[in-house]
């Protein structure tokens, strides 16, 4: 008994009406469908096949060598020779138009950026100059004679004050000033009687 017969007999036991029906296929397909189906499937899988073999994306040769230049070309300002069509000053007919065009040009990104850079440099420059002047003043103040700073002369100082002053200030620098030397000698001559022999010996 073949399978077809076996299945029919099996069905007769519990569905005799159904067993007597012809089990033909009521569905159809378009003409030539099964001839075209394999091509359709292969067309669908071909890109997958290509993906298996290599990376899906690639870049032109030396792309990464030229990429930095491409980027810089885009971000750097273009040459001055490039025309500004709508706002070109050459096309203006009177001074008022020229002025309006010039002001409008300043608000174009490339001019505005330059203007902003110049303004920053100007403000920065002024600030720097002021800072230098202030610092110069401080330096000058530092070089002021401590005696002058307090409205004193060397005559107003006692020996102890002088000793303290000499220990605090640079003697060599003070002695570079002839006036200081003269004043010191005069002070010593005037008060020579008050100086003991021992002090004189140690001083000399």
């Amino acid at each position: 008994m073949n399978r077809k017969e076996e299945i029919r007999k099996e069905l007769e036991e519990f569905a005799p009406f159904l067993a007597r029906l012809e089990n033909k296929m009521a569905f159809k397909v378009p003409k030539g469908y099964f001839d075209e189906l394999p091509e359709g499937v292969l067309e669908s899988v071909s890109p997958l096949n290509a993906l298996k073999a290599k990376e899906a994306f690639s870049v032109p040769a030396n792309y990464f060598d030229s990429l930095p230049d491409l980027v810089l070309e885009k971000v750097q300002p273009k040459q001055e020779t490039e025309a500004v069509p709508a706002l070109s000053p050459e096309k203006s007919t009177n001074w008022l138009d020229e002025l309006i065009n010039s002001i409008a040009m300043l608000f174009q990104p490339r001019y505005a950026m330059r203007l902003a850079a110049v303004a920053i440099l100007l403000i920065g420059g002024i600030f720097l100059i002021q800072n230098i002047e202030n610092n110069s003043g401080a330096i000058a103040d530092a070089e002021v004679d401590p005696l002058e700073e307090y409205g004193l002369t060397i005559d107003d100082l006692t020996d102890d004050d002088l000793a303290l002053l000499l220990s605090d200030t640079n003697i060599e620098e003070s002695m570079d000033n002839p006036e200081n030397i003269d004043a010191l000698i005069d002070h010593m001559l005037e008060n020579i009687d008050d100086i003991s022999d021992e002090d004189l010996e140690s001083l000399l």
Partner: peptide, 24 residues
């Protein structure tokens, strides 16, 4: 395989989609 699928989904266009997906 097509007829097996067609009997489940009934319409040819649907069966065509399913058989293609099956082979893929």
């Amino acid at each position: 395989l097509y007829w097996h699928i067609r009997k489940m989904v009934y319409e040819h266009d649907d069966a065509n989609d399913v058989i293609q997906n099956t082979f893929i």
